[in-house]
């Protein structure tokens, strides 16, 4: 565990779970989209749904989608900033069955039509867990650089991808493989120590059975 998860984050108030954590969920969703969002639908569940207005959770999520950090004073004005730069956003209060009390589901659309859906929970003290990316259940804390590889469920994929990392001396801290069905689309979630450059992403993407690869920096 990290001391600065407890004494920290340095943040704009008023709530570490409802403001700082929400900024981080938004930021993660924005970086998974990887480009400027033009439309955002944000679904609040549990305590988020009941109290988001009072905690500035709406401002925080939007600030995160726009790429702001938890201590950015512009969080207070993020709604106005988003409107100015043409982000069409809507908030919805829902009840996501079985979800953590502080859960948000964010659907983003980019200018070119690329869509992502990211569900995350704010678990206290500004810490988060990303629980779903598109239709795949995941478990990502965002504390380490994370490589997400979507690929066809065929033999040899794990060794192909991990060999690329091994050749560059990259150490894997956590590895997870999920698939919706045998032979369908599978997702590798690889948390690594330190950072890697985009060259790794290009190398992974060049495998014919890889449909998408994204490197997400730690937040």
């Amino acid at each position: 565990m990290d001391a600065f998860d407890i004494i920290g984050p340095i943040m704009i108030g008023p709530s570490s779970s409802h403001t700082a954590g929400a900024v981080r969920i938004g930021k993660y969703a924005g970086s998974i989209l990887g480009k400027k969002a033009v439309k955002a639908d944000i679904y609040f569940s549990g305590s988020f749904a009941k109290t988001y207005k009072g905690h500035g959770t709406d401002k925080a999520i939007i600030a995160g989608i726009l790429g702001m950090e938890t201590d950015d004073a512009r969080i207070r004005n993020s709604i106005e900033i988003a409107a100015e730069i043409g982000l069409d956003f809507h908030f919805h209060e829902v009840d996501i069955d079985g979800a953590h009390p502080n859960t948000a589901l964010i659907e983003l659309v980019a200018e070119d039509g690329k869509k992502v859906s990211v569900q995350g929970a704010s678990i206290g003290g500004g810490n988060i867990i990303i629980t779903k990316i598109n239709d795949t259940e995941v478990n990502i804390s965002g504390k380490a650089t994370t490589i997400i590889v979507h690929h066809r469920d065929v033999p040899g994929m794990i060794s192909d991808v991990t060999n690329i990392l091994a050749r560059r001396g990259v150490n894997i801290g956590r590895f997870e493989l999920r698939r919706s069905q045998k032979g369908g689309i599978a997702v590798m979630i690889i948390e690594i120590d330190g950072n890697v450059d985009e060259g790794v992403n290009e190398a992974i993407s060049s495998f014919p059975n890889v449909t998408a690869s994204t490197i997400l920096k730690a937040i």
Partner: peptide, 21 residues
């Protein structure tokens, strides 16, 4: 009060309890 006014604080461990430590 700085926290309630959307000012900058250090969560310790949270923003709601940021004044104690």
């Amino acid at each position: 009060e700085t926290n309630a006014c959307m000012g900058k604080i250090v969560a310790a461990p949270t923003a709601g309890s940021c004044g104690i430590l």
